[in-house]
Lab assay of single mutants.
Amino acid sequence: TFYNFIMGFQNDNTPFGILAEHVSEDKAFPRLEERHQVIRAYVMSNYTDHQLIETTNRAISLYMANL
């Protein structure tokens, strides 16, 4: 899942690491979701930090390219 992918960046001092920290603390994050459209919609609806949203979009693109 995307959640498992992004958790691989925990403790990294990178934008993906920052995203992983936010996702791990977000109890409502769709952890079992595999459809990138649902993940993107969730982030757009629940996150207000523009940098975090952009990082999510980049992470989703990388995740999709590696499926």
Rank of each mutant, 00 (worst) to 15 (best):
Met7Glu: 02
Ala41His: 11
Gly8Gln: 15
Ile53Gln: 08
Glu34Met: 15
Ile39Val: 09
Asn13Phe: 07
Tyr3His: 03
Tyr3Cys: 02
Asn11Ile: 05
Pro30Gly: 00
Phe29Glu: 02
Thr14Tyr: 03
Asn13Glu: 09
Phe16Cys: 06
Arg31Pro: 02
His50Met: 13
Phe16Tyr: 08
Phe5Asn: 00
Tyr63Asn: 01
Pro30Lys: 02
Thr55Leu: 12
Val38Gly: 05
Asn46Cys: 07
Ile6Gln: 01
Phe9Lys: 02
Leu19Thr: 00
Glu34Pro: 10
Asn4Lys: 11
Glu33Trp: 03
Ile18Leu: 13
Ala59Asn: 04
Ser45Thr: 12
Leu32Glu: 14
Arg58Asn: 10
Leu52Ile: 10
Ala28Glu: 13
Asn66Glu: 13
Leu62Asp: 06
Asp49Tyr: 13
Val43Ala: 07
Val38Met: 09
Lys27Gly: 09
Thr1Tyr: 06
Val43Lys: 00
Ala28Arg: 10
Glu25Lys: 15
Asn46Gln: 08
Ala41Gln: 12
Ala20Met: 04
Tyr3Asn: 00
His22Ser: 06
Lys27Glu: 12
Ile6Lys: 00
Glu34Phe: 15
Phe9Gly: 00
Leu67Val: 11
Arg35Asp: 15
Val38Cys: 11
Glu21Trp: 14
Asp12Cys: 12
Ile6Ser: 01
Leu52Ser: 02
Asn46His: 13
Arg58Pro: 06
Met44Tyr: 13
Ile39Trp: 02
Glu54Trp: 06
Pro15Asp: 13
Arg35Gly: 08
Val43Glu: 01
Thr1Arg: 05
Ile6Thr: 00
His22Thr: 11
Glu25Cys: 11
Thr56Asn: 04
Asn11Lys: 09
Leu32Tyr: 15
Arg58Phe: 10
Leu32Ala: 11
Thr55Met: 07
Ala65Asp: 11
Asn13Cys: 09
Leu67Gly: 11
Val38Asn: 07
Leu32Asn: 13
Leu52Gly: 00
Ile18Trp: 12
Thr14Arg: 02
Tyr63Phe: 12
Asn46Glu: 07
Pro30Val: 05
Met7Cys: 06
Ala20Ile: 04
Ser24Ile: 09
Thr1Ser: 13
Tyr42Asn: 01
Ser61Ala: 14
Ala41Asn: 11
Leu67Tyr: 07
Tyr42Gln: 00
Met7Thr: 05
Ser45Tyr: 09
Pro15Lys: 06
Ile53Trp: 10
Phe29Asn: 04
Thr48Asp: 09
Glu25Val: 10
Pro30Cys: 03
Asn66Met: 15
Met44Lys: 10
Glu25Asp: 10
Tyr47Asn: 00
Asp26Cys: 03
Lys27Phe: 08
Val23Lys: 03
Phe29Cys: 03
Phe29Thr: 06
Ile60Tyr: 06
Glu54Asp: 10
Met64Gln: 10
Tyr47Gly: 02
Ile53Lys: 07
Val38Phe: 08
Asn4Glu: 14
Met64Lys: 09
Ile53Leu: 10
Arg40Val: 12
Asn57Cys: 09
Thr48Phe: 10
Thr14Ser: 14
Leu67Thr: 12
Ile60Lys: 00
Glu54Gln: 08
Gly8Cys: 10
Glu33Pro: 03
Val43Gly: 01
Leu62Pro: 00
Glu25Trp: 09
Thr56Phe: 15
Asn46Val: 07
